[in-house]
Write a protein that binds this DNA or RNA. Structure first.
Lengths: 227, 227
DNA sequence: CGCAGCATTGAGTCTCATCAAGCGGCGTGG
DNA sequence: CCACGCCGCTTGATGAGACTCAATGCTGCG
C-alpha cells in the first residue's frame, strides 16, 4: 500500500455512491466514514491472500480488483472481478475469519479499507449497515451462481456474446463501447484462457462484432443474441 | 406441497440446530418459530422457479434440494445442493426480489418456509438475525467460489477425489462411508455428466477407491490426495 | 527507436459431453 | 415365485471445445 490516508472530499463522494454506503442512513455513513482508510494500490499489488486471517473489508473506489484461487501447482482461477463501488471480502464476514480467495489489484486502484472488527461492531448496533451487507452478499451470490451456470452451459463464444450483450442497451440498436479492462482480465473473468477469448472474438466477427484494441462495435445485437 | 403445518417438536428440534437459527438469541428464535411453516415435499417437487418474485425463505430440515439454472434449450446446470440445516433462497434477500435460480427437491424432503417480508421485518429489529443471515450468505459465497475455482482448475477425477477427501477425517486412515445422495446428483453438484462421474470412479479404483452402489471405501487417502 | 507486454494465430492434445447400447437391482403384477 | 419393466448406473465410441505450447504481430511507453 503506497499511501494511507483519511478519505478526502473526492473519496467521500465515491464512497457515498458505492453499493455499500448508498443504502445507509446518515449516522451509519458517518460511522463508516470514521473508520475508513483510503489506500492507493499499484497494479498487481496483493490485498490479501487466501487463507490469511481476515481483518479488513475493502471497497473499490477506482480501478479493478481480481479475486482468484490458487492450485497447488500455482495455476490461478479467477472467481470474481470487482470494479468501482463493489465490496470485497464480504465472503469473509464470518466464514472462519479467513479469506477464501486471494485479491489482487488488476490495475492501479484506489480502495477504501474498513477494520472488520469495527464493522461488525457497528453492524451489531445499526441494522441498516447489517442489511446493506446482507444485500451486497446476496447480490454477489446471485452473480456467482450466474457465472457458474454460464460456465457449465455455454461455449466460449456464447459466454463472450452474453458478456457483450450485458453491456448493451436492451433495444436492438447498434452500439460501440470500450472494454473497461484488459482482455486478459476479461478472459479470466469468463473462465477462459486469453487465446480462447481471442478466438471467440474472431468468430464473432461473423455475427456483427468488431473489435479493435479495447474498442468494441456491435452492429447487430440480434444476431449476437442468436449465437 | 403436500402438507402445510406448524412446526412440531421434532421439526423445532431440527430447526434449532440449523445453520440459521443456531446462532440466534431466544427471542429471535421464538419470532422465527412463530412464522415458520413446515412443508413436506415429494421428490422432484419444485420449490420456486428462476425469475419468479421471491416471497419465501426456505430451510432444509431433511432431504436435499437442488438449485439449478436453465438454458433456453432446456439444459440444466446445477449450482448448489443444499442438505439438512442449509438455508435456501438467501440469494434473493434483496437482489431484485426475484429468485436467481430454480429449486427442486432431489428426494422426499422436509423444509421450513418463512415469509420473506416478515423475515426482513424481524431482521430490521433484531441484529442477531440479520448477522446470522449475513453469515449464512458469506459461507455460501465461499462455497460457490470454491466450486467455481474447482471447476476451472481440476479435471473430473480430481474433483471427485477432492469431494471424497472432504468426507474423510484428515488423518490418513482408510475409511468407508455412504454417499448421502444419488450419484447423478453428485455428478450435477460437481458439474459433470453422470457418465463422467462413473468413469472418474472407475479410474480412481487404481488409486485406492472402491465403490459399490452408494458405498465408498477409501483404502489409501494419501494416494487419493496425489491424484 | 527499441523494448516489453499483450494479443493473435496455428498445431497438437486432452478432457469431457453426447449418443447409444447393455447391465443390474427393485418393485409390480401376473 | 417368476417375468417384466422401469430406472439408475456403467461402458464404449465419437466429436466438439478449449487448454497448452510456440511463434509472430501489435501497441504503448520509455
Amino acid at each position: 500500500m503506497n499511501r494511507l490516508m483519511k478519505p478526502g472530499a473526492r473519496e467521500r463522494e465515491t464512497l457515498l455512491n458505492s453499493g455499500l454506503l448508498s443504502a445507509l442512513g446518515v449516522e451509519s455513513v458517518a460511522a463508516m466514514m470514521e473508520i475508513a482508510v483510503i489506500g492507493n494500490l499499484p497494479a498487481r499489488q496483493i490485498l490479501f491472500r487466501e487463507g490469511e486471517p481476515a481483518d479488513m473489508l475493502h471497497c473499490v473506489l477506482s480501478g479493478y480488483v481480481r479475486l482468484y484461487k490458487l492450485d497447488p501447482d500455482g495455476r490461478e482461477a479467477d472467481v470474481e472481478l470487482y470494479g468501482p463501488g463493489d465490496l470485497i471480502g464480504a465472503s469473509a464476514l464470518l466464514d472462519g475469519s479467513r479469506y477464501a480467495v486471494t485479491a489482487q489489484a488488476a490495475e492501479p486502484s484506489l480502495i477504501a479499507r474498513f477494520d472488520l472488527k469495527r464493522v461488525r461492531e457497528i453492524a451489531s448496533r445499526r441494522t441498516d449497515l447489517c442489511t446493506a451487507l446482507a444485500n451486497a452478499l446476496s447480490a454477489q451470490l446471485s452473480r456467482v451462481f450466474a457465472s457458474l451456470a454460464d460456465d457449465r452451459l455455454h461455449t466460449a463464444p456464447q459466454r463472450v456474446a452474453r458478456y457483450l450483450l450485458s453491456h448493451c442497451a436492451p433495444d436492438g440498436r447498434a452500439v460501440s463501447f470500450r472494454l473497461p479492462y484488459q482482455k486478459s482480465l476479461l478472459a479470466g473473468k469468463l473462465g477462459l484462457a486469453p487465446e480462447a477469448l481471442s478466438r471467440a472474438f474472431s468468430l464473432l466477427r461473423n455475427h456483427g462484432v468488431n473489435v479493435r484494441g479495447r474498442l468494441v462495435q456491435i452492429t447487430d445485437p440480434e444476431a449476437l443474441r442468436r449465437v
